[in-house]
Amino acid sequence: MTVDDSIRRKFTVRFGPAVGEWLDALPALVESLCARWNLTVEHAIAVGGTSRVFRCRREDGSRAFLKLTPDREVATTELTALRAWRRSPHMVDVLVADVDAGALLLPAIAPGTMIEDEPELIPFEVLRSLREDVDLPAGLPHLSDRVRFMAELTVRRAPELESLTGKGIELTEGGVQGLVHGDLHGRNVLRGPHGLVAIDPRPTIGDLTFDLVDWALAPGVATREELERRITRITAGLSYVDGERLLAWCSAVAVIIAATLRPGAQRDFLVELAQR
């Protein structure tokens, strides 16, 4: 098992240079967990810069995903949220965990197709369930902490956008407060055997409107008219959503999304939106 340079770069941006030691020790950690949990690694999954994920076969022949992060808090908060959403049919379950090792074992979802290629789809059943089928947990950070961190990460990724970061803190206290997924977009919603299923939360407590930004600013949205059309659809489908608050959140988060995009019409629109 090797860790290529692109993965090292992503993890270094997210966690700093010290993460190199964790990446070097990762093969031994995977081997140890596979022995404990009776797993056989099939292959690694290409993901973001927070976790490494391996598709595994369990002793009974079923498949599962071994998710590993160098940050114990990331594993702990995700486990807390998954347990809080255990009543929801639209959130992935957790099979077993070792937060000291930064490890979660999650069941495979079939067919597991991401909905990122369906930009017109807004997963209302997921959004409703994550608000309603939840036991609000204690011990999670506040949304304001995540907004600050995302602003810091944006500066690391795109220093030229630093002057546009820092917005949104004032929005975290208002709106409908609850358990926020924190990273709910088309790559983190999969087609399951009985409907759509969300994965990979970055959970906090705060304004639930935050989880709607990626659906308002879906891939391809590059004009104010298209954004307003999406917001109108969302407010029609979710009675608790205030359109003006969602627009304000879109303006606050636009620069964070822009920092992850290549030059183009949507990135230009998001930078313009962030300047308002």
Rank of each mutant, 00 (worst) to 15 (best):
R87P: 00
G48R: 13
A101G: 06
I169L: 15
H194R: 14
V255G: 01
A248Y: 06
R128E: 09
P17Y: 05
R87A: 13
G49P: 11
R224G: 11
V197N: 02
A18Y: 08
R230C: 00
R128L: 10
V221T: 13
I205N: 01
L127K: 01
E132F: 00
G178Q: 08
V74N: 13
K10G: 05
M1P: 06
E173M: 00
R229M: 04
E160R: 13
G182A: 12
R8A: 09
T40E: 09
I205W: 02
L247A: 15
R202M: 13
R9P: 00
R245F: 04
R157M: 13
T235R: 12
F210L: 12
R87E: 09
G168F: 02
V221G: 05
E116R: 11
V197L: 03
I205D: 02
H43T: 14
V176R: 11
L273E: 08
G48L: 12
R14D: 01
A138G: 04
P159M: 07
A158V: 10
M114A: 13
D5H: 09
R128T: 07
V92Y: 00
D145Q: 11
R156M: 06
G102I: 11
T69L: 04
P107D: 06
A236D: 15
P141N: 10
I199H: 05
L23G: 06
A265Q: 07
V47K: 10
H185R: 08
V47W: 05
V147I: 15
F54G: 06
R191N: 09
L217T: 13
T80D: 05
H181P: 05
V94E: 02
L143R: 03
D71P: 04
L196P: 03
I115W: 09
D4I: 01
I7F: 00
R58H: 08
A236K: 14
V253L: 14
G264W: 05
A18V: 13
P119I: 13
R83Y: 04
L106F: 03
F149V: 05
I122Y: 03
V221D: 03
G195E: 09
E160Y: 00
G243L: 03
A151T: 09
D71F: 03
H181S: 11
V99D: 08
F11Y: 11
R55S: 08
A44W: 12
A248I: 09
L66S: 08
G174F: 07
A35H: 05
G243V: 12
G168V: 07
T260W: 01
I199Y: 03
